[in-house]
Nucleic acid binder design. Structure first.
Lengths: 193, 193
DNA sequence: TTTGTATTGGAATGATTGTTCCAAATAAAA
DNA sequence: TTTTATTTGGAACAATCATTCCAATACAAA
């Protein structure tokens, strides 16, 4: 006697992610969401709880997706310097190709909701620590297989590259000039040499 | 017969700057401003026009102030590497000491109001170009006086350091661990050596 | 003191905010 | 077809939003 779901929760969540990503938490209204998600207002509350809960779910989806992409890239690309280069240049081109200039959802959320939202702040801290480790482990992999000088500090370099990555995500919103930013990437990656 | 101003426009603007800086444009209400600025609602509209105009004035004040600080630092510090180091570490300690974790008003505004606000976008692009030039000229100064290898590209290095600077402003909001970030600074400044 | 302006408190505006509720419609299982 | 659960449109809610207006007050120049 139970019915099957009429709409795909994941699809709806992806649309919510796009909206929050583009406009941020405060500038996105429930009316915006109801208009664009394709489901009813009541269903929205039934399924996701409310605006805050929906935002957190959408944000979590973004983090999972982008983390997975980076993990796959780092796993498939054996040349560590090349792996970072692809990651950075992908971010630059993503910003160039996106007419919305949404930038990075994590960076946007960091600057919009800190201070004020302690729950999000905890998530962001955890996310930063994960990314930091991900970067550092990849550098360590390069050291282990002899691509990178073993005298280098993997954690230090990992955090430095992650910092540069965040800076690129900010600047690409203002001026997505690919050639200039790609030179920045090359210069930044010189810490690996 | 004309009267003298009862309140200091500059003081009021500074308080508005603090509020917008901490909470952003959308999360700051006119009621917030009326409550904290110390002047009447009607006077606020008379003097500054409205929320958007007030934000732009407050934002302009921030840009002027911080640009002036950087210019002074670069002018007084003859050792270029040391100048950048002081600038970066000052930003880190500023974030550490600020319980509000307001971060950088320019970075916050970039990620909040792009896309959407074309007027602000133009201001931000101009600001980025100015900062880029400021950084590059300082690097060039180091090349001119022999502190930095003349084979280096001042513009490239300037933009790279500015990018790293923006990244630090983002990460310092999430986790203002001074020692780790200072290592990042040292590593980033190795592009000058 | 008179005059003219700056500033005030507070009400009022209309629009939008997030959220809740409900009867009607819909659709898949029994 | 009947049953049961999902989804819908739309109204209603109280709260807040940015903005405007006005009569009363405060204050400095004439």
């Amino acid at each position: 006697m139970p019915r099957t779901k009429q709409f795909d929760k994941q699809e709806v969540l992806e649309k919510a992610m796009e909206l929050f990503w583009e406009k941020g938490f405060h500038a996105t209204s429930m009316q915006d969401l109801v208009t664009h998600l394709g489901i009813n207002r009541a269903s929205l509350y039934d399924t996701f709880g409310g605006k805050e809960a929906l935002f957190e779910s959408a944000f979590q989806l973004y983090r999972q997706t982008s983390t997975k992409h980076i993990q796959q890239l780092f796993k498939s690309e054996q040349n560590v310097r090349q792996g970072f280069k692809v990651l950075f240049e992908k971010a630059i081109e993503e910003s160039l190709n996106d007419p919305c200039k949404k930038g990075c959802f994590v960076v946007n959320t960091t600057t919009e909701l800190i201070p004020g939202d302690v729950k999000i702040q905890r998530i962001l801290l955890e996310n930063k620590n994960n990314a930091e480790t991900l970067f550092a482990d990849y550098v360590q992999k390069g050291i282990a297989n002899g691509q990178i000088d073993s005298a280098k500090d993997a954690k230090e370099i990992g955090l430095m590259l992650f910092t540069l990555f965040n800076g690129i995500r900010v600047l690409a919103k203002v001026d997505s000039n690919p050639s200039k930013l790609k030179k920045v990437v090359n210069l930044g990656l010189s810490v690996l040499a």
